[in-house]
């Protein structure tokens, strides 16, 4: 047998993707939530300069990908990146690196600490084999949903339940005017009236109130499940509201266990398609067993986006 030139364990975890050219690979780096320290960034630049072709690619899921790496350099690249500081990401039927927006740390719209959640999920669940297909998780800080959480297998979105302190209100009417959902109107006493059924928990009223009369009574994540993009896109639907930040990992693990079990023998099939086949009731009831106070009464199947020809009703 020929002398083994590289450590094959590095390949197993995934994250090394074959390119077109002979012997060339893309190395996908692990950047949970898109957060990257400047020190790490310079280290990556150094390695990319030395082993790559003068550029990197910023992937849609917030990874930095080293391009044009010769497979003979794998061990050197992994060693020089520093195994502790900069890990290589995964591909295949595994839990992928979670994505996230900036969240509440410095972003004025953020309602929850998405960066903390992304890091925690990365540490505890990254790389878990699903047995079936890829599994993507995403955290958005608020219902604007810039990072598109609902097209992930499990998508989290920061949410707050607003509470009014009527004595602090100076009757300016801004909150009612700012609520895009029609959940607020000004009452006869010139104070806002809250219609809970229309509220989407965006917190705009809390943000806009000049006196701080609105505050957050509850805070947590709205969770949508069953989304994906690709050739046959699905948008995930609502399963839970106000899931506390500290139960996120457990929540994902529960969804993952259901997926692993229900897709048994089904081959390469994404969670959303399994939900469509099994019925949403099965997953919803499973989750209710563990998270009764957060799971919604009922939901709907993942929503199919018709993006391929022939469109329904058309005959080609």
């Amino acid at each position: 047998m020929a002398e083994q030139k590289i450590d094959l364990r590095n390949l197993k975890a995934g994250g090394f993707i074959k390119e077109r050219g002979k012997d060339l690979f893309t190395v996908r780096l692990r950047v949970p939530g898109g957060r990257m320290s400047v020190d790490r960034l310079s280290k990556i630049a150094e390695v990319a300069q030395k082993y790559g072709k003068g550029y990197v690619h910023l992937s849609v899921r917030q990874s930095i990908e080293l391009i044009n790496i010769n497979f003979a350099d794998f061990d050197a690249v992994v060693a020089e990146l520093g195994e502790e500081q900069q890990k290589v990401a995964s591909c295949g039927a595994r839990v992928r690196v979670p994505t996230a927006c900036g969240g509440c740390e410095y972003n004025p719209n953020g309602l929850v600490d998405t960066q903390k959640s992304a890091l925690e999920v990365d540490q505890k669940l990254f790389g878990t084999a699903t047995g079936h297909h890829k599994f993507k998780v995403c955290f958005a800080g608020c219902p604007f949903d810039c990072p598109k959480s609902a097209i992930n297998d499990v998508g989290f979105q920061g949410a707050v339940w607003p509470k009014l302190d009527a004595d602090g209100c100076i009757s300016c009417g801004l909150c009612a005017k700012s609520c895009t959902e029609g959940a607020l109107s000004m009452g006869a006493d010139n104070k806002p009236v809250f219609d809970a059924a229309r509220c989407i928990y965006c917190g705009d009223c809390i943000k806009v109130c000049p006196t701080g009369a609105w505050s957050a009574e509850r805070k947590g994540y709205t969770v949508r499940i069953g989304g994906k993009w690709g050739r046959r896109p699905l948008v995930g639907t609502l399963y839970a509201t106000f899931v506390p930040e500290e139960r996120v990992v457990e929540f994902i693990a529960t969804v993952l266990a259901w997926y692993q079990e229900k897709a048994e023998g089904a081959g390469r099939v994404r969670l959303g398609d399994v939900i469509i086949r099994e019925g949403w009731q099965s997953l919803l009831e499973r989750l209710r067993g563990y998270f009764p106070e957060y799971v919604v009464k009922e939901t709907i199947a993942p929503q199919v986006i018709q993006s391929q020809l022939p469109l329904p009703g058309q005959h080609v």
Partner: peptide
């Protein structure tokens, strides 16, 4: 809101 964060007292709007 930003002026309130700076420590001024809002009397009316």
């Amino acid at each position: 809101r930003s002026l309130k964060d700076e420590g001024h007292k809002l009397l009316g709007l």
